[in-house]
Design a protein around this nucleic acid. Structure first.
Length: 430
RNA sequence: GGCCCCAUCGUCUAGCCUGGCCUAGGACGUCAGGUUCUCAGCCUGUAAACACCGGUUCAAAUCCGGUUGGGGCUACCA
């Protein structure tokens, strides 16, 4: 049975690169009907933090990558020591004493050619005479990364190691260790790295790196996954949008790209918008409630859900990120709209008292306050006044919403309601 | 420096393995139009790439070699 693992180190948040590694491991395990093992690599006791473990687990759950087993390296120190002693006894490792008298166990690297058959890159050859002897157990008693990794992958029967490109040079060291421990080699697949827009490593400097940051910004997990998928794999037939379940069916590890990819927020925004468009407004509304409540835009225990749903539907097709709704639709929740200075300058400098009061009057008189009738009365009014519709539409929008952009004006008026629309119009009547 | 990986539009990619169908396709972004009302929505269109040099071949984006460029590793970090 296929067994893969994702092995994050809790010395920081789950970042984009880690999320992508987790994604491909999960995807592969699903496509092979195998197991997905999670291993927390917390051997660095100084830098490892419980809060990071929690954060990583939360992010993985949010992305939907459920694991079948979970292990913590900090609970397995005796296993590493036991195997190190084994190598000591077989003469493949030796002890080195530090000046303070502490002992480290070192693996004697034999000089030989090492061939690696990478599932993504094909054959890679190394010369181990260029590799120096490897520390297995540090003088403080904790194992080194390469040793703990091999012991665990071996004991946990990991069949496929799918990880970042940056581990290629660790692989010959690990292959040697497998052989020394008397274990069969797993298959290796090295994923290309994700770079920041500046061409270097994706870092905080070049944008958000933590998966949880994208969650907070209002990206949907399905959208983020779809984007990450596209970064080094293509579903075929020129398709850009592919759901995770479909990806499981189409995925083949040999089709993963070899080239490092640049993380492009613009395309992520586009994909997120595609998912937002297709999303269930009920779910989007649920996700927005806490944020709207935090801004005092609504009382979470007592609000008009039908109204909120209608507003979500009005905006969802134009949002790059769900959270943008909070700012873009603020005028529906505020007593008075926040008028954008530039918008006011552009559309409300001339005196529109006559037009505004006439329109307000017509709205007030509408027997049936519905979008079609609102538009009809508006069109009639501009016809009578002999002005172009757009000459009045833009100023009215700014007066009602404070913005130059947004949903169609007549929908805005309808959902704003007769009272509030008229009041906001009359504010500009001298 | 040494070792290793990589190389198609600005970005993500299809094509490469199994040379000819490639005057290199798609998407994001850009720009330009259009949208009885805006755009950050929608529609249409435009510009934009096989890093370079050799070789193999009737034929190379595709195979081989080198150069250049980018990246990674080179810790008693992971």
């Amino acid at each position: 049975m296929v067994r893969v693992r994702f092995a994050p180190s809790p010395t920081g948040n789950l970042h984009i690169g880690g999320g992508r590694t987790a994604l491909f491991n999960w995807l592969f395990s699903q496509s092979q009907k195998g197991a997905f093992v999670l291993r927390i690599e917390d051997t660095d006791q100084l830098r490892s933090k419980q809060e990071f473990v929690d954060e990583i687990l939360d992010s993985l759950k949010w992305l939907g990558f459920n694991w079948d087993e979970i292990y913590y390296q900090s609970q397995r120190f005796e296993r590493y020591r036991w195997h190190a002693e084994r190598l000591l006894q077989s003469g493949l490792a030796y002890i080195e004493k530090s000046p303070e008298g502490k002992e480290a166990i070192i693996y004697k690297v034999p000089a030989q050619k090492i061939k690696l058959q990478d599932l993504i890159r094909g054959q890679i050859e190394f010369d181990s005479s260029l590799i120096k002897d490897q520390v297995l157990i540090k003088s403080d008693g904790t194992p080194t990364y390469n040793f703990a990794c091999v012991v665990d992958d071996g004991e946990m029967n990991i069949t496929h190691i799918i990880r970042g490109d940056d581990h290629i040079s660790n692989t010959p060291k690990q292959i040697l260790l497998y052989t020394a421990l008397g274990w069969e080699l797993p298959q290796f697949a090295h994923l290309p790295l994700i770079m920041g827009v500046d061409g270097g490593r994706l870092s905080k400097r070049t944008g958000a790196t933590a998966i949880s940051d994208y969650r907070k910004m209002g990206y949907l997990p399905e959208a983020l996954i779809n984007y990450l998928l596209l970064l080094s794999w293509a579903p075929g037939e020129n398709r850009e949008l592919v759901g995770i379940q479909e990806a499981v069916e189409l995925f083949e590890i040999k089709n993963v790209n070899k080239t490092a990819a640049t993380f492009d927020l613009k395309k992520l925004d586009w994909i997120n918008n595609q998912y937002l468009k297709a999303a269930d407004p009920e779910k989007l509304a649920d996700a927005l409630i806490p944020q709207l409540a935090a801004k005092q835009y609504l009382n979470p225990d007592h609000f008009d859900r039908a109204q909120l749903l209608a507003l979500v539907k009005l905006f969802q097709a134009r949002l790059p990120r769900l959270n943008d709704f909070v700012d873009w639709a603020d005028f529906f929740f505020l007593e008075e709209p926040l008028i954008d200075a530039a918008a006011q300058e552009k559309y409300l400098t001339q005196d529109l008292s006559k037009e505004f009061s006439l329109f307000s009057e017509r709205l007030g008189k509408l027997a049936v306050f519905e979008i079609a009738y609102i538009e009809e009365s508006f069109r009639q009014l501009v016809a009578e006044l002999g002005i172009e519709a757009k000459k009045l539409i833009h100023p009215v929008r700014v007066a009602l919403t404070g913005k130059t952009i947004g949903p169609g004006l007549f929908e805005v008026i309808y959902y704003l309601g007769k009272e509030r629309s008229c009041r906001r119009l009359l504010k500009w009547v001298k």
